[in-house]
Amino acid sequence: MLIGRVIGEMVATQKHESHSGCKALIVQPLQLDGSNRGDAVIAFDSVDAGVGDRVLLVTDGYAAMTSLGRLESPIDMAVIGVIDRLDFSLSPGGTGPATGNSVTTGSAAADSGLSLPLEPFGGRGQELLLPAVPVKKKTGRKKEGEN
C-alpha cells in the first residue's frame, strides 16, 4: 500500500467492459514528507475519494479487484481509503519519543503542502524500521561467509 494524493480524474468511454461504472482517479504517490514518489498512476476508486484527498493506494491486482468487487477484471490499482491523520510513535532516528509528530489532513494541512514536522523517512527510514536487528544480521552473515 502507498500513500498518495488524488490530483485528478480520468474519463474513458472505450474501455474494457468490466471497468464500466468505476470512477478512475489520477493518484500521485507520495513520500512521507509529502514530496512526489515517482509518476502519477490511474487507480479506481472504492471509497468515494475526491480530488485533493490524501488516500491509501493498493498496487496489487488481487487487492484492487477484491476492493472493487470485480474479480477477473484487469485492474491493478485501487484507492481503498482516505487518510485522516498520520501518527509517528518514534522519531526518525529510532530512539526516543517523537516530538510533535502527528499530521492531520485537513484543508489547512492540504493547503500548506502537507509538510511533516519530521525528517522524512527517505534517508534513515530503514534504521527506524529495524533499529537493532540489522547489526546482528550483518555479523551473523559475515560469520557464515567465513565458515
Binding site: 480524474e9 480520468m10 474519463v11 474513458a12 468511454t13 474501455k15 471497468h19 489520477i26
Partner: peptide, 14 residues
Amino acid sequence: NTVVGIVDLLHVKR
C-alpha cells in the same frame, strides 16, 4: 502489459 481503455478526458489539478 495490456491496453485496457482509451482516454477521452483528463481533469488534473496539482
